[in-house]
Design a protein around this nucleic acid. Structure first.
Lengths: 227, 227
DNA sequence: GTAAAAACCTACCAGCCGGTAGGATTCTAA
DNA sequence: TTAGAATCCTACCGGCTGGTAGGTTTTTAC
């Protein structure tokens, strides 16, 4: 084959695309050897691409290009496109799950525990993986993988319902339809990826605070509260 | 071409697939002539298919088969797949918009007007078009069409914000961050298509009532309210 | 230095699906 | 009955993209 342009010369100076995903791959001429780190980079890059263009409008070639690599390299780290989406799902759900687990060992009133979870929840959905958490379609996963993701989501839902029930018991949360309330809370938070863009006025934490305030106080003015 | 089986015999008895979309096409052997009705049927059928399988996992052949028709027939009623999605968008948004407009001529307290809108909103997203309203991706539309849809969505958002502001003035709604509150309300409702299935215990109206109750009262128990 | 393993690439395939050309059928109008 | 419009179908194309075969380069181990 005829002489093709030296690729290294281009690569070294092409890491200026915001995400430095490619820097994980090579530093200078040296080919790095950390499988786990690179695999994570693949997933993270995929998540970002999915968020921007959607799952079906993101080709593996595009993800590869973003990483300054070719398509088969991706298949070296992940079985197929479906698994790529799956990994994005779990990576996104993980922080929410751990937030729930953290609160299990707490003795604070349930309302406060709930608020803490909601705050972490907001952070999670505002992340790069937020799109996968919320907008990705289960039909794009095979049955077993879809079931796994669904199980995780159910765990989250049940966790929130439990906090609500606990709140009813300890009196920190007013009586309400647990199922509907959980859906309403999750829904409000899950909508964040639709409108939130980083480098916005408000941080994810601030959004969470605003939401928590609304959920706590309600829209109807409370009687006699002027200090 | 060799003798292919008489199609009419099959067609007459094949309308048992839940949706009677095909009955709009023929009645007996007679080929009906109402363009508008059939076009609506195409859009409605597409909406249902999108909801069940997602936009990209729904082929035009599949939609055509559902209508007991061939693919080119669809192109007789709509320019392309993109426009099909666009029509689903607007068809879904319309009832929400008209709900907002209806309330403009009302003199009730803003909180009640808001609740009325939210109720209609819930009905809309629980419909066949709910998926398109909420889950369809704007990237699947061309720039001009996407802009149109976005404009409608903005109108809805602004309408809700206005109601909140009006409520602040007339005292029927407690002071709050208007922007965040609007996002939270819309988000909670927009999440309905993710979990709601028809023939469920609760109707869309009941869901709306539960949500409205939550938004109004808030989670924190209100003082002195045992009648 | 050398063999084996790890990492990556070039080149290619094949299926799916959106879209179309052009013709057949069926209706309406007169 | 017949012209012309409306409706629908058969048959086909071509591009995009997920996925793979098989070889090449780089790194590690000894």
């Amino acid at each position: 084959m005829a002489a093709r342009p030296a690729r290294s010369r281009i690569a070294t100076a092409a890491v200026a695309n915001g995400a430095d995903s490619a820097s994980v791959w090579r530093e200078g001429r040296k080919r790095l050897r950390d499988h786990a780190v690179k695999r994570d980079a693949v997933i993270q890059t995929a998540a970002r691409a999915f968020r921007e263009n959607g799952f079906h409008n993101t080709s593996l070639d595009a993800i590869a290009a973003q990483l300054e690599v070719t398509k088969p390299t991706i298949y070296y780290y992940v079985a197929n496109k479906e698994q790529l989406l799956f990994e994005c799902f779990v990576a996104g759900l993980q922080p929410i799950l751990s937030a729930l687990r953290d609160q299990k060992s707490s003795t604070a009133p349930a309302r406060e525990r709930l608020n803490a979870v909601l705050r972490q929840y907001a952070q999670a959905v505002a992340s790069d993986f937020g799109w996968c958490l919320v907008r990705a379609e289960h039909q794009d996963l095979s049955a077993p993988m879809s079931a796994q993701v669904r199980a995780l989501k159910v765990e989250i839902d049940q966790g929130i319902r439990r906090l609500l029930k606990d709140g009813h018991k300890d009196g920190s949360i007013a009586p309400c339809d647990v199922k509907m309330t959980a859906f309403a809370l999750a829904g409000a938070l899950n909508w964040i990826p639709h409108w939130y863009r980083e480098k916005q006025a408000l941080s994810a934490a601030q959004i969470a605070d605003a939401f928590v305030a609304l959920f706590e106080e309600g829209l109807r003015p409370r009687a006699a509260r002027r200090s």
